[in-house]
Amino acid sequence: MQLEPFNFENIPLLVDVVEPLWCPSVGSSEFKRFNVEYIVRNNIWENDYRFQLMGGSEVEGAGARGGILSAAFFARKGDKCSVEEWFARESQRFPEEWLTASAMSKTFLTLMDERTLSLMNDDDIKLSLFISRKPGAGSQILDQACNHLRDEGWKNLYLWTDCECNWQWYFNHGFTLVKEDIYEPFNSEDEDYKTYIFKRKL
């Protein structure tokens, strides 16, 4: 399995994985997929720390694009994301009332990125997103990417996640919980919506 720069043509394959988990409650099926792609693209930064792990063409579901097992995206302090250009172009076909869901996603993502980046030093780096299309490939891309980052001199890896994800996974993979908060806009009557920031030495 080979680590290589991420190919943007593979974004639809990543959306396929997370669409059932991140789908908004409003809009058509086309809009719901658009909103999930918006979330994915919000985690892809303008830098050289965008990776995919490739296997053979026999990977189940790889299709014509072939072989992508997982992807991982990282951000340094000061990096920019150009997703708003894509959003301005692609969102025009949807009504404004549906786009409220996209605005809520953006507000949450921006806040959590800012909270995480504020804890980092200039020689730390943030894992923005990793998605696996095959069991075990998420751990493998993290291991390979972290080796690459360590060789470049990065000191610590940070990330944030929330209670809707398998946040306990990070305890078993060398991460330490450094901050826990509640994001009140997403609270339900029965449960607080918790967010978590983790750190791991590279």
Rank of each mutant, 00 (worst) to 15 (best):
K179D: 14
F94T: 02
M104D: 14
E84H: 11
E90D: 10
E184W: 04
W167R: 11
E152Y: 05
S102C: 15
D181L: 12
R115E: 15
D151I: 04
N156S: 13
P95D: 08
M112G: 02
M104V: 08
Q144K: 14
C163M: 12
E84L: 12
T100P: 02
L99M: 10
S91D: 02
Y183H: 06
S82I: 00
P185W: 09
D190A: 12
P135A: 11
K134E: 15
S102Y: 01
A145N: 10
Q168F: 07
I141D: 07
T110L: 08
Q92M: 13
A103T: 09
F186D: 01
C163I: 14
L149F: 08
D122G: 10
S188D: 03
E152T: 05
R93L: 01
N187A: 04
R115P: 07
D151Q: 15
H148Y: 14
W86H: 01
P95T: 08
Y183Q: 03
R150F: 10
T161V: 11
W98H: 06
R150D: 13
S118Y: 00
L177K: 10
Y170F: 14
C163A: 14
S105W: 01
D181A: 13
F175I: 03
A101H: 00
Q168C: 03
N147P: 00
C163R: 05
L109C: 10
D124F: 01
N121M: 04
Q92D: 10
M120C: 03
W86T: 00
D122V: 00
A101T: 00
C81T: 08
L159M: 14
K179F: 09
L99I: 00
S82P: 06
S91P: 04
C165E: 15
S102M: 03
A145T: 13
D123L: 05
N156C: 11
M104Y: 13
A137N: 08
K126H: 08
E96S: 14
W167H: 15
